[in-house]
Structure formats: structure tokens, C-alpha cells
């Protein structure tokens, strides 16, 4: 059985990816299963979806904790989500990235690592940053759990004619442009972090969420230190971040009062710097700024 895990963000179509793959497997007479991670996740929050493919009927009703293949739909996830968690030593990692696969080699014995600039292809062909079908092109090229024609058939079945054509075009381009690293061919001494998950540029520290191993449950699961959601950094959901041009800022506070995440607070000089730990990158501040002092910029990638 082949177990595949997709990492994306709420609203990016990770579930659709998993379902298209399952659909493709079914058209080949295989057995398949696709399902989302069930939870209260909101748009932008890191989410996972899963796909199983086998020659025999699949009788498992559990999450996939040791996948054979991991696909990462959004490169900004690499900063906060441990995407290789549980990935089998013989597994394959496929990442949406402008960088080559050698940037994602780490001390993990993998079978293959592949990258494709899915965002670039998506913006060019689809006109928006939806990478879910595109990553499937990279998957077929790298490991071929199903035939390319099966995926295109699944896409045709799912989308209307115009969108199907665009998605298939994008898929095929991804298939062509995928860069693959066969790990057994790769010098072992270089199996280390090639690109540390350090903060890049303007986007300040966004830390992975610490998982406490032991919590004393109060009566009725009551929370005695409310306001502690501040320990959860929603900045990790962000694909775009706001950049303030202080020369144009008139310190009016519009960005502050209109931020759903209370990410802006006034400093001693009267400016309103943003706290990127919480900014989800919605862009309200940039949209509403009366002087156009705020610009939204795309988040940069980080390594695994």
C-alpha cells in the first residue's frame, strides 16, 4: 500500500489533490482512499490531507502517520510544520519550491526529493496561487503511483472544461519542470541541513508550536490563564506580509483598529509596527491605509 500525505493551507485544495489522486487510481482499477484531516482549521491554517493507493481493498480507518510520500503545496509551511514527521526512510518528499531539491536534503534517509516551482506555474497559467493539481504533476514524474493520463482524466471529470484545460496544462508543465534528486546517488556527508529554517528578510520569528506533554486538567477543563492563545503564532499561516513605509505613514491608527488579529500596536514614536507572530497576512491594513504606506509582499521560502 502506498500512503501519501499532503501539506497545504486551509482553502488551498489539499483535499482536492488527495481526491484527484484517488480518483486517478480508481480509473486504473486500483483501490484508493482520500480524506482530510478533520478539525476546526480555518482558511490559511496548516492542514493535511491523505491518500492511500493499493491493489487490494483498503480497510484502514486511521490517519497516516508514516507516509511513503509527502507533498508540500505551500513552501511557507516549511517554517512551521514538520512535514517529514513520520516519513518513511525509504520515502519521497516533493516540495513546491523555486529551489532545487538539494536544498532540502537533511539527515534523513530518503529515496527521492523533488521540487517544482508550482507557485510560479500556477500564477503563470491559472492566474492565482493554487498549486494542488500542479504538485500532482511533480508526483507522477517523481514516483508515478498512477499514470499521467489517469490524473488528467480525473481532472476532466472534476472541473469544467475551461478550468480542466488550464489545470492539465499546468500539470503537464510541472511534469516537465520537476527536478528530482535520487538520494542513493547523493554524497552522504552532505546529508545535513542545507537551508536552515531561519527567519528570512522582514518576516520575523515564526516558531513552531510547542506541544506540552503534560497538562493538569482543571475541573471541567476550565482554562485558568486565558489570553494564552498568544502562545500560538498564527503568523505561520501567512503567505504575504505587510511592509510599512514609514515615510508615508501618518500614524493614524487605521491599520491598528482594523486588524482582526490585533497584530498592530503603537510604539513610542507613534508608529504602528506589526507583530509578525500574529499577522495572518490578510492585507486589510494595506488595503485600508489612507496613504498607501503598507505593501503586501510574498513570504520567502525556507528549507526543511
Amino acid at each position: 500500500m502506498l500512503e501519501i500525505r499532503f501539506h497545504g493551507r486551509g482553502g488551498q485544495g489539499a483535499v482536492t489533490s488527495a481526491e484527484l489522486l484517488a480518483e486517478a487510481a480508481l480509473t486504473e482499477g486500483k483501490h484508493a482512499q482520500a480524506f482530510p484531516s478533520f478539525g476546526p482549521e480555518r482558511r490559511g491554517a496548516p492542514v493535511t490531507s491523505y491518500c492511500r493507493i493499493d491493489e487490494l481493498p483498503i480497510r484502514l480507518r486511521t490517519n497516516i502517520s508514516a507516509p511513503d510520500i509527502v507533498l508540500v503545496l505551500d513552501p511557507s509551511l516549511l517554517k512551521t510544520v514538520n512535514v517529514t514527521d513520520g516519513l518513511k526512510e525509504t520515502g519521497t518528499l516533493i516540495i513546491n519550491s523555486q529551489k532545487g531539491p538539494e536544498h532540502f536534503v537533511h539527515n534523513h534517509k530518503l529515496h527521492k526529493i523533488a521540487t517544482v516551482d508550482a507557485t510560479g506555474i500556477a500564477l503563470q497559467i491559472l492566474g492565482r496561487s493554487i498549486t494542488n493539481t500542479i504538485l500532482l504533476g511533480a508526483l507522477i514524474r517523481t514516483i508515478a503511483p498512477v499514470e499521467l493520463s489517469s490524473i488528467t482524466a480525473a481532472i476532466q471529470k472534476r472541473f469544467d472544461q475551461k478550468n480542466a484545460a488550464l489545470n492539465i496544462q499546468a500539470l503537464q508543465q510541472a511534469y516537465q519542470e520537476t527536478k528530482i534528486l535520487n538520494m542513493p546517488d547523493y554524497p552522504t556527508q552532505e546529508n545535513q541541513f542545507a537551508d536552515a529554517p531561519a527567519a528570512t528578510g522582514e518576516n520575523a520569528p515564526v516558531q513552531p508550536q510547542a506541544q506540552s506533554l503534560w497538562i493538569e486538567l482543571e475541573l471541567g477543563c476550565l482554562i485558568t490563564n486565558p489570553g494564552n492563545s498568544k502562545t500560538y503564532y498564527t503568523g505561520s499561516w501567512r503567505s504575504f506580509y505587510p511592509l510599512l513605509n514609514k515615510d508615508r505613514c501618518i500614524k493614524c491608527g487605521i491599520c491598528w483598529i482594523l486588524c482582526p488579529d490585533a497584530a498592530y500596536t503603537q510604539d513610542t514614536e507613534g508608529f504602528y509596527p506589526v507583530d509578525l507572530n500574529y499577522c495572518k497576512g490578510c492585507g486589510i491594513c494595506a488595503h485600508e491605509c489612507p496613504t498607501g504606506a503598507i505593501t503586501m509582499l510574498q513570504e520567502k521560502e525556507a528549507g526543511v
Binding site: 476546526p40 471541567g220 477543563c221 476550565l222 482554562i223 485558568t224 486565558p226 489570553g227
Partner: peptide
Amino acid sequence: PVTIGAFT
């Protein structure tokens, strides 16, 4: 202040 009835 306490929070009562959080979801788990």
C-alpha cells in the same frame, strides 16, 4: 478571568 467550556 477564567475560560469555561473550551472545545477539545
